[in-house]
Simulated assay, not measured.
Amino acid sequence: MPNVDAFFDALRDEITDLAETHRQEMQEAALEDGEAFLNQTRDDLERWSRLLEQGELSQEEFESLVRGQKDLVEMEALKQAGLAAVRAEQFRDALINRIVGTAGRILL
């Protein structure tokens, strides 16, 4: 589906923007972790995106499902790069928020 492809393209742009909010040495790690999360959750995100687009899931249900994936976001590269656990968690939360917001913008 073209909208799901547009959704993932937009998510990659969001990850890049989010990574740029971190100090220069952390940007690469943030990009790596964001891409790893997308790769880990791609099948679920595709399925939920289609359901959202078809009106079979509400945006609130979509958000709940995505937030349920929060524990999968390990942020290993950020931790190895020296980012404190609090900052890694903030990045993870911001990533989840961007996924939900992008889905609403692209798919609804």
Rank of each mutant, 00 (worst) to 15 (best):
I106N: 08
N3V: 08
T41K: 11
T21L: 11
F7V: 01
A6Q: 10
E63Q: 05
G104V: 05
I99G: 02
L78N: 03
E74I: 12
F7S: 05
R50C: 01
N3I: 05
Q54N: 12
D9T: 11
D43W: 03
D93H: 05
E60H: 06
G82R: 06
E61D: 14
E35H: 05
D9M: 07
N97E: 13
L51D: 03
L65P: 00
M1F: 10
T16R: 10
D71A: 15
S58K: 02
D43H: 08
S64L: 11
Q24I: 07
A19T: 01
R23C: 02
Q40D: 15
A19N: 02
G34W: 02
L51K: 06
A30T: 08
Q80I: 04
E61F: 03
V4T: 11
D44G: 11
D44E: 15
L78E: 09
Q90D: 15
A29L: 08
N3Q: 12
K70L: 14
V86C: 00
L57E: 03
W48M: 06
R50L: 14
G101H: 07
S49H: 00
L51Q: 04
E28N: 06
D71N: 05
F62D: 10
L72C: 01
N39S: 14
A29E: 06
A84E: 10
E63L: 01
A94T: 04
E56D: 13
R98K: 10
E35C: 01
E63K: 08
L18Q: 09
A85S: 15
F91K: 01
V86P: 00
L11F: 09
Q24C: 00
I99W: 05
A94D: 13
R23D: 13
D43E: 14
L72M: 11
L83F: 09
A103T: 01
E89I: 01
R67L: 11
L38M: 01
A103M: 05
A84N: 03
D17A: 14
E89R: 07
L38Q: 02
D33W: 06
Q24E: 11
E60W: 04
Q90Y: 13
S64F: 13
D13W: 01
A85L: 10
R42T: 06
V73S: 09
L18T: 05
Q54D: 15
F8W: 02
A103C: 08
N39R: 12
R87N: 09
R12L: 13
E76D: 15
V66D: 09
D5T: 11
E32Q: 07
G82Y: 04
T21G: 11
D13F: 08
D93K: 06
G104K: 06
Q90C: 01
A84G: 08
